[in-house]
Computed example of a mutant assay.
Amino acid sequence: MQYLIGIVIVVIYSGMTFYIGWNFNLWLASINIHISNLIFWPLLYVVAFGFVLGRIHELLRPLSVLGNYWMFIFEYGLILCIIANIVVFITPLTARTTGSVAVIIFIVLFIYGTYNAYSPVVRETTVKLDVDEPMTFVVASDFHLGVLSNKAHLQRFVTLSNGQNPDVVLLVGDLVDDKPDLFIKKGMGEVMAQLKSTYGVYGVLGNHEYYGNALQLIVDELEKANVKMLLDETILVGERFYLTGQEDKTNKARKQIADLAPIERDKPWVVMNHTPDDLNAPANAGVDLHLSGHTHLGQLWPNEYITRKIFELDYGYKNKEGMHALVSSGFGFWGPPMRIGSRSELWVIHVESK
């Protein structure tokens, strides 16, 4: 059954790709640009399946990069082609005029999306907890460090984070994109190690760390970069608050949040859990501040309408039965290095006494 479903998905995807290619070819012909079918169609499908082909062998990795960009082309190409076909059908406008406008819109979206991905912003919120003195948390997730979310982008985070003079830095999963080979090769750990805070830098695993079958190597490399990885464990940070790093739900053997509760409850309890799939359990367990990522806020419009349906909280802040919950859209990106309807970000949480 899974094999059959896979075939159906590939057929539908290939058909949609053909639809985009057919429209683009039609527009090219309208402006007197003609590409041989023997070149156009094979090239189109190699790019369309580049994300998969690029994972077969190291030498094919450039195809993976093309495949990442294709995700953007596919989504907005499909939307623009449908709109353009409707416009041509119901108005006297020609395919050449309508196609040209669609191409211009696509280029604008491409530039705008790239800017949003590589120009992160700092967002701030304030929560009140039972603390003696105020604290500042820097929170970020979903770096997906690798080919496109690269060393330079990580340096932007370090610069922004250090500028906040935080008491603690919390990295909430999907720090590395599947495999840590580029993280190691490009010396990203050296950049990560530049993070400064009073009580240290702490991280948890997300779903993508599990996908590359190099989990222990990822943990080791992040630890070398002075990121204390919390794997289903709770610690006391600076005698100020309890911090739990819960394994991502990808790990079917992860502990329940109630089993990770601190024995003493004399200080605030902060939890990092990459995927915000369940806010009821931590709220019932008495968590004071729950931090997540994973959703990317859909990353590309209109995907946020999907994440809103899946998650109780897919972005931003919510008070859940007295528990402060925050979900970040992430500092990096997955797939295409573009964001539309979202923005690469880090959060600064100002913790004040009640």
Score class of each variant (00 low, 15 high):
G146N: 00
D277M: 15
L175V: 10
A193G: 12
V108D: 01
W27I: 10
S353M: 09
P302N: 03
G238D: 12
L260P: 15
L300H: 00
T244S: 14
K151N: 12
H57I: 07
F18V: 15
Y112A: 13
A285R: 05
A325S: 03
H296F: 10
V327D: 10
G163D: 07
I340F: 05
G200N: 03
N162C: 09
I83A: 15
G146H: 04
T126P: 02
I105N: 05
G245Y: 01
F110D: 01
T275C: 04
L93E: 10
Y202D: 03
S64P: 09
V348Y: 06
V103Q: 07
Q216C: 07
R265H: 14
T250P: 05
G99T: 01
S197E: 13
V52A: 12
P302D: 10
N116P: 07
V168F: 00
F110H: 07
A95F: 03
G163T: 02
R55N: 14
K320T: 14
L236W: 02
V176F: 08
T94D: 01
K224Q: 14
N150V: 03
L60N: 13
I263A: 15
I90G: 00
S344G: 15
G298P: 02
G298A: 06
G15F: 07
Y19S: 13
D181L: 03
V348T: 08
M71R: 12
V172R: 00
L260I: 11
V147Q: 06
G316I: 01
A102R: 04
D174H: 06
E209M: 01
F311L: 06
F333P: 05
F106K: 04
Y305Q: 11
L326C: 11
V169W: 02
E221I: 10
L4V: 14
M135N: 08
Q299K: 02
T275K: 10
G330Y: 07
G330R: 06
D181I: 08
P336C: 05
L38C: 09
G54W: 05
I90Q: 00
F183W: 15
E239F: 08
R339P: 06
T244D: 07
T198F: 03
S329M: 11
I257E: 08
T234K: 01
S30R: 11
E124N: 14
D259S: 13
Y305G: 06
W41E: 07
T114Y: 15
G332H: 05
S119H: 14
S119M: 12
D248R: 03
D174T: 05
E264Y: 03
F333W: 01
I263S: 13
D288E: 00
N37L: 00
Q155I: 01
L231M: 15
K185D: 15
S119E: 12
V139T: 03
N226M: 03
L279F: 02
H34P: 10
N116Q: 09
M135A: 00
Q256A: 13
V147F: 11
